[in-house]
């Protein structure tokens, strides 16, 4: 069992400091922009950056504290994300009881992570919650809309609790030949690459994007954005891996490409969900970004892939 706090690895400290400097530079640039030409556009940027400060403070705090603090933070993010998901969908009053049981799955799943019980971590939601939530609906004896309700609840649990939980698992995953203090670095590697991939795909798409990729789901996505993003993330993975992870460059580069591809899939999958529900953003908890789900859409897809990669090589 890893301790609640571990002292951070040198590489993790260096990368965290780098992120802090990047944020500082961005804040300086945005405040100059806002002073020169104040308007709704720059106001949006200021809000967006302020939210980034809060996100980075919480996340880097957990990464540097290492150990179990990160598990707690991700448990809370799963709760916020599942709540946001539930609030977007027109569930009925009768569905409340089944939803309550679904909420209870969050502390249970994170307890399995906390104790490092990998077997239960991998089956609890996909198997047991999959069986328990319909059972609760059956006991309510409401057959109208039965399949819709159990299907929507399970999809939400899978994506916001099970998939995201894979990022939390990284905090307790022992890696052979790698110090325990390195766990935070591995999480920082995954989350940093996922966010960098979002930004890289956006920038490549803006500058070179012509051919639309999925105009019926997300009109902004282009082939250039996807390919440029995947390449950039693969290169970045090769550069950051020696600082944050036990991965050699020849393994880190394909992982980076995988993160690029899965990050894109998470982004467009959440776009499809929002289109179906007729909303632009999933919420308003992060001013300038939208909801929690808008921020972690890619991470929910990249986390399982990354964890399985890592376990394949190092567990």
């Amino acid at each position: 069992m890893s301790p609640l706090f571990t002292s951070a690895h040198e590489g993790t400290l260096a990368v965290s400091a780098g992120i802090g400097l990047l944020l500082l530079a961005a804040s300086g640039w945005v405040s100059v922009l806002h002073r020169r030409k104040p308007g709704p556009g720059t106001r949006e940027l200021v809000l967006r950056l302020r939210a980034w400060w809060v996100i980075c403070a919480l996340f880097l705090g957990a990464v540097l504290a290492g150990g179990r603090v990160g598990v707690l933070l991700f448990a809370f993010i799963s709760y916020l994300a599942f709540k946001e998901y539930v609030s977007l969908i027109p569930f009925r009053r009768v569905d409340r009881r089944a939803l309550f049981w679904a909420y209870l799955a969050i502390p249970v799943q994170y307890a399995f992570i906390w104790t490092g019980w990998y077997g239960m971590f991998t089956i609890f939601i996909p198997v047991y919650m999959f069986l328990i939530v319909p059972m609760r609906m059956v006991s309510l004896q409401e057959t109208k809309g039965f399949l819709a309700t159990v299907g929507m609840i399970h999809w939400g649990l899978m994506i916001t609790v099970f998939c995201l939980g894979h990022a939390a698992w990284l905090f307790v995953q022992p890696l052979s030949g790698f110090p325990v203090a390195g766990a935070g670095g591995v999480v920082l590697f995954l989350v940093g690459l996922t966010e960098a991939n979002d930004i890289a795909q956006f920038l490549w798409g803006k500058s070179l994007g012509r051919r639309k990729l999925l105009p019926g789901v997300s009109p902004g996505k282009t082939w250039a954005g996807l390919c440029g993003g995947v390449l950039t993330t693969a290169v970045l993975a090769g550069l950051l891996a020696p600082l944050l992870t036990p991965l050699p460059v020849r393994v880190a580069v394909p992982i980076g490409a995988g993160i690029g591809l899965f990050g894109f899939m998470g982004d467009v999958t959440l776009s499809a969900l929002k289109r179906d529900l007729g909303v632009k953003d999933c919420g308003g908890i992060l001013p300038g970004h939208g909801g929690i789900l808008d921020r972690i859409d890619s991470l929910m897809f990249t986390a399982p892939l990354f964890l399985h990669f890592l376990r394949f090589y190092y567990a």
Partner: peptide, 12 residues
């Protein structure tokens, strides 16, 4: 008001 969700059988 929450946006309409016509593709959804719970919306009655």
């Amino acid at each position: 008001a929450p946006p309409p969700f016509p593709s959804h059988p719970n919306m009655t």
